[in-house]
Design a protein around this nucleic acid. Structure first.
Lengths: 250, 250
DNA sequence: CAGTGGTCTAGACCACTCA
DNA sequence: GAGTGGTCTAGACCACTGA
């Protein structure tokens, strides 16, 4: 039953989410009508629709005009924070994230890095290479490039800090609001092979990423290389709700 | 300047989109306030906000509370149809899609296929293997599994049909409304090697996909294997708008 | 045809940003 | 403190579904 106190769209979303995850509404079933929900939550259709739209975006519901809202899945997708941070994602999965910094050096931005970070070519940047582990097993090689405005702050973060994202937010108030990801596949290079402890030529999933502040200022350009059988990226797409796109490799 | 006739949220969205793509508003710039836009389009804030939310989902805009809507990018993301259909995507990129059916056989659903398609184990399914080309070059190997309710209709589609998705919609009225994608990386198997014309052991980007009707009925389970340097998947994520998630490979 | 979601209006108050 | 986006209300009409 609905929480009598749920009036904001967030509360309604979280209440419906709980009820779906708890199988009160199973996949394939139709929810009560928007008007009925509005009445039972003591609010209006507009507010209920905001909550439903949120669950649609998360891939749990789909609207069928003239019929009702159908439960599409009861599997909860991950939050943006979990997507953004390796450590937060790992903890959400009850796994122990670890890793070590292999190298951290200042240098000049390449043309590619400069374009991604929207800074001048040859501006000062900090490049950090980390090897990431899950439950002690190596899963990923991460190369990150930070623009000068944040580089000095990043440099003070200890090499064994599990979550750089958390540290940036906690210690410096720098928050990630957006991230663009590009996913493709590459072969293991000689350098990769040494750091990851695998043979050359094998498959790696590469994720290139630019994270930005709420104002749109790029915080970092990162390139992650995952070993096979370690992670899968899942995208739930529908006509009106996803920003996934497929593009020609450049 | 705004089209005087733009009154629905779709029209406003498309007008703003044009103005952003045409660099009337460049990345980093702030749009006129919601109230100002509402007035100039002859509508209300609510309608304008729907349009803005759509552009946010597409990764073009981001709201900054107390300040305004900031242009984040002027690169247009692809539509759901382009994501869904290899042929439509290729045409959007001005490339020529091609391919041939290598095998098409009826068989019994495996436990995995049955779970994905929400049908009984050992139900009758149609399995089709296609090799896909772009501008004549082999880029992808596609294995698709169709449940019985649609299999006979799929079987009538010619092997050289460029877009199965289009054919299903055009000839049978079967429309894809959702698709869940899981992306990871695998090594080239001996079978793959033969069909794709590459050596064993190299990297392939694997995309597993379940497409559903508006009512949520699975239409197909597909597994695509892309050669390196052919496609990249791009995801634009923010705190409130994307369904991308990262999960442990199973 | 009754009931559903899709859309739009017109207003209100709040939280936040920035000069 | 003026102006911005964030939220919510209370209603209206439309397009569509399904019995």
């Amino acid at each position: 039953m609905p929480s009598a106190s749920a009036r904001s769209h967030r509360e309604i979303l979280s209440d419906l989410l709980t009820r779906i995850v708890d199988d009160e509404f199973v996949p394939g079933a139709t929810l009560p009508s928007e008007s009925a929900l509005a009445q039972s939550y003591g609010t209006t259709r507009g507010t209920v629709r905001r909550a439903l739209a949120g669950l649609q975006t998360r891939g749990l519901l789909t609207p069928v005009q003239g019929s009702g809202w159908v439960v599409r899945s009861s599997r909860q997708h991950q939050s943006f924070d979990e997507l953004r941070s390796f450590a937060q994602w790992a903890r959400g999965k009850r796994m122990v994230p670890g890793g070590r910094v292999h190298a951290a050096d200042f240098g000049e931005a390449s043309a590619y890095e400069a374009r991604r970070l929207r800074i001048g070519v040859r501006s000062r940047v900090l490049r950090v290479t980390r090897v990431r582990t899950l439950d002690g097993r190596i899963v990923m090689l991460e190369r990150t490039c930070y623009p000068e405005w944040i580089a000095d702050r990043v440099a003070t973060i200890p090499g064994d800090e599990a979550s750089v994202v958390e540290a940036l937010s906690r210690d410096f108030g720098v928050i990630t609001a957006h991230a663009d990801h590009a996913m493709d596949v590459v072969a293991v290079s000689s350098t990769d092979a040494e750091l990851l402890g695998v043979r050359r030529g094998g498959p790696l999933l590469r994720v290139r990423r630019v994270s930005c502040t709420p104002g749109g200022a790029p915080i970092e350009y990162g390139e992650d290389r995952y070993l096979p059988d370690t992670v899968t990226f899942v995208v739930s797409a529908s006509r009106s709700s996803t920003a996934l796109s497929r593009s020609v490799a450049d």
